[in-house]
Computed example of a mutant assay.
Amino acid sequence: MTDQLAPGANPLTVVAVRSHRHRAPLLRPFITAARRTESVDYVVAEVELAGGTIGQGSAAETVAVTGESADTISRALDGPLRAAVEGVTDSVTGLSARVAAALEGATSAKAAMEVALHDAWARDAGRPLVELLGGRLDDGLMNDMTISLEDPEVMAQHAREAIGAGEQILKIKLGHDIALDRERLAAVVEAAPHARLRLDANQGWTPEQAIEIITGFTADGLPIDLVEQPVAAANIEGLARVTAAVELPIMADEAVWTADDARRLVDSGACDLLNIKLAKTGGLRGALEIAEVAHAAGVECMLGAMMEPRISITAAAHLAIAHPAITMIDLDPPAWFASDVPAGGYRQDGAWLRLTGGPGLGLEPLPADVDRAGGDR
């Protein structure tokens, strides 16, 4: 990316690592083919540098995807991840490598620590993180709004509300029931006929079902931009069959966690697009590696997210705006939260997401007593 990412640049000394847990209710349930979520338990990581600069990152409980609960995230942050960086002087690249090597798995917890390190690094430099990643603060990307998996009439109402609020791209959750999926999509199209659509089956179809239903959508002339992870993540051969058989672009999500995954998918022609998520990659460095693989292959990427809080989403937005391979974002989770904390980071202008500036992530510190897990707000 840039010389600012060189291993020897800007050494940091980490003097303390802390974490605190939170719970945030959602405005309404978020439903996919894989799970139903009504509130989000998450953990905030804080990294303090010599001189007093503090950076923050976060990780949401995503048992169904990464296998991590709030308990395991807290244990990872307070145990091996803290031990990996506390008292260490190194570049942000070197510190990130220590985080990656500290334990197996725990990608969400690693992302929280690694984002906190990058926030502290950029704050210490007095610059927005996007600039240190090689991007421009003034750039932005068009966001989407997810319509979760419910009865057709409910999805139609949510689509109308989203378009009324200025959204232009709707991400439609589908999966499992082919006939009902057709009804759901028809209801959304009727409610929002001018919206662009992104479909996400969350691994809900077999390859044969995916080919049948996607071919039908194409024949109907529906305004669909892409179909995300139509088949099981492990079924790379099936994903490749779908990609070869349909006209619509196919995006891999659950199938891509690392740069090696990305390279295998791209080289085998198993998909047309990649969805990068910090909670899968273990943070910004792993995400950058995937984006570089995609960029070299001429493949476009989406920067997506789990149902994660504003800190995580802001970090993802900085990376997305910085990297040329990332042309799409799916960063609407904070719009689902009943509380919008911490302040700053980014703003949504209609369908457009834009960074607000300020050093690091541009966020205010999140107090430990806000949205406390197991207690009142």
Rank of each mutant, 00 (worst) to 15 (best):
L170V: 02
I213G: 00
I213H: 06
A245D: 07
A186S: 14
A240C: 06
N235A: 06
I172P: 04
W205G: 03
A245N: 00
A191F: 02
Q229E: 14
V231N: 13
Q203M: 15
V227W: 07
H176G: 00
A195H: 02
I211L: 09
Q168A: 13
A192I: 12
D220C: 10
D200V: 10
P223F: 09
V246H: 02
V246Q: 05
E237Y: 15
V189S: 03
I178N: 11
R196Q: 12
L226R: 11
H194F: 07
L170W: 06
P207H: 15
I214W: 05
A179I: 04
K171N: 11
E212K: 14
G221S: 05
V188L: 07
I224K: 12
A234C: 04
I224S: 03
A187G: 04
D177K: 06
N202T: 10
L174W: 02
E190H: 13
Q209T: 07
G216C: 00
P230S: 02
P223D: 11
V231M: 13
V189R: 15
A195G: 01
E208C: 04
I178D: 13
I213T: 13
E212S: 15
N202F: 09
V246A: 01
G204H: 00
E190N: 10
G175A: 10
A187P: 05
D225T: 10
I178H: 12
L222V: 05
V189Y: 07
L199T: 08
I211G: 01
K173T: 01
A245E: 09
E237W: 10
A233Q: 14
A192N: 09
E208H: 12
A191N: 11
H176T: 10
F217S: 07
E208W: 05
G216H: 13
L174Q: 03
R198L: 03
R241T: 13
H176C: 02
L199W: 04
P230I: 01
E190F: 08
A201L: 05
E228I: 05
A201C: 06
Q168R: 15
A186M: 04
A210H: 11
A219P: 08
E208L: 12
G221P: 08
L174D: 03
L226V: 14
Q203D: 05
V242D: 00
T218Y: 02
V227R: 05
L185R: 07
P193T: 11
I213R: 01
E183H: 06
L222P: 07
L239K: 00
I236T: 14
A219V: 06
A179Y: 02
I213P: 04
L185H: 13
G175T: 08
L180T: 14
T218V: 15
T206D: 11
F217T: 01
L174G: 08
A233F: 08
V227G: 04
F217Q: 08
D225S: 13
A232L: 14
A195P: 07
E190V: 12
A195C: 01
I211Q: 09
A240V: 07
A244H: 09
